[in-house]
Amino acid sequence: NQASVVANQLIPISTHLTLVMMRSEVVTPVGIPAEDIPRLVSMQVNRAVPLGTTLMPDMVKGYA
Rank of each mutant, 00 (worst) to 15 (best):
E35S: 11
V27F: 02
L40G: 00
A34G: 15
V49E: 02
P12R: 09
R23Q: 04
M21E: 00
A64T: 15
L51F: 13
P33V: 08
V27I: 07
Q2S: 13
L55K: 01
P57R: 07
V5R: 02
T15D: 03
V60E: 02
K61H: 14
G31R: 02
S4T: 04
R39S: 10
R23Y: 05
V45W: 02
I11V: 05
V5Q: 01
A34D: 08
T15M: 09
N1L: 13
S4E: 01
L55T: 01
T18G: 04
M43A: 07
V41D: 03
L55M: 11
T28W: 08
T53F: 12
P12F: 04
Q9W: 09
A7N: 00
G52L: 04
V27P: 01
M56H: 07
V26D: 15
A34S: 13
Q44M: 14
V26N: 10
S4N: 02
P38N: 12
S14F: 15
L40N: 00
A34N: 06
T53K: 09
I11N: 01
L40M: 06
Q44P: 05
R39P: 02
P57G: 07
A48N: 15
M56T: 12
Q2M: 11
L40Q: 00
M22C: 03
Q44W: 05
M56N: 05
G52K: 02
T28Q: 12
Q44Y: 11
P57K: 07
S14R: 11
D58V: 09
E35D: 09
A48V: 14
D58C: 15
V20Q: 12
S24E: 12
A34L: 03
N8K: 08
R47Y: 09
A3N: 08
I11E: 00
V26I: 13
Q9A: 11
S24T: 14
M56Y: 10
M59C: 06
V49K: 01
L55Y: 01
V41N: 03
V27W: 03
V6T: 06
T28M: 10
A64G: 12
G31W: 03
I32P: 00
L17C: 03
A34T: 09
Q44R: 13
D36T: 07
T53A: 14
R23F: 04
Q9D: 07
E35T: 14
L19S: 07
P29A: 04
A48D: 15
G31K: 00
V45E: 00
R23K: 10
D58R: 08
V5H: 01
H16M: 14
V49R: 01
V20K: 14
K61S: 12
A34W: 06
S4C: 05
P50M: 08
T18M: 13
T18H: 04
H16F: 15
P38K: 10
M56D: 05
I32R: 00
I32C: 05
L55V: 07
T15L: 04
N8R: 09
V41W: 03
G62Q: 07
R23L: 04
K61A: 14
D58W: 14
D58K: 08
R23S: 06
R47P: 01
D36I: 06
L17S: 00
R23P: 00
A7F: 02
V5F: 03
V41I: 10
G62E: 08
R39T: 14
P33H: 09
A64P: 08
T15H: 05
I32S: 01
P29S: 04
T53Q: 11
V41S: 02
L40T: 02
P12Y: 05
D36N: 13
D58P: 06
G52S: 07
I37W: 03
S42A: 14
V27N: 03
E35V: 12
P50N: 11
R23T: 06
V41A: 04
T15W: 09
T54H: 02
V5D: 02
L51M: 13
R23D: 05
M59K: 01
V49D: 02
T53W: 14
V49I: 12
T53M: 11
V20I: 11
L51N: 13
P38A: 12
S4A: 02
T18A: 09
L19G: 05
A34I: 06
P57T: 05
V60C: 03
I11A: 01
M43H: 07
T54Y: 03
T28L: 08
M56G: 04
T18R: 09
L55P: 01
I32L: 05
D36H: 14
N1F: 12
Q44K: 10
S14D: 15
K61Y: 13
N46A: 09
R23H: 05
T53N: 09
R23I: 06
T53L: 12
D36W: 08
M22N: 00
S14C: 10
D58M: 11
L19R: 13
P33Y: 06
L40Y: 01
V49S: 02
L55S: 00
N8L: 04
P38W: 13
L10K: 14
A34R: 05
R39W: 09
S42L: 09
I37P: 01
I11S: 01
T28P: 00
N46W: 08
S14T: 09
T28S: 14
H16C: 15
I13G: 09
E35N: 12
L51Y: 15
E35G: 08
V49C: 07
P50T: 10
L10T: 11
I11H: 01
P57W: 08
S4Y: 04
T54R: 03
V26Q: 12
S24L: 05
D58Q: 12
D36M: 12
T18P: 00
S24R: 08
L51D: 11
M56V: 07
G31M: 02
L51T: 13
V45N: 01
T28H: 12
P12S: 07
P38F: 12
P38H: 14
L19F: 14
V26H: 12
N1K: 08
A64R: 10
V45G: 02
A7K: 02
I32W: 00
A48K: 13
E35L: 09
L55W: 03
L51G: 10
V49A: 04
A3C: 09
I37H: 01
V41L: 13
P38R: 09
A34Y: 07
T54N: 02
P38T: 12
N1P: 13
Y63G: 04
S14P: 01
V30E: 15
I37E: 01
I32E: 02
H16N: 09
Q2R: 06
K61V: 15
Q9R: 10
S24V: 11
L55G: 02
R23A: 06
M56I: 08
S42G: 14
M22Y: 01
V30R: 06
L40R: 01
V26E: 15
A7R: 02
V45L: 09
S4Q: 01
T18L: 08
D58N: 13
L40C: 03
V26M: 12
L40H: 01
E25F: 07
P29Y: 04
T54I: 09
G52A: 06
T15C: 07
L17A: 00
S24A: 12
P38I: 11
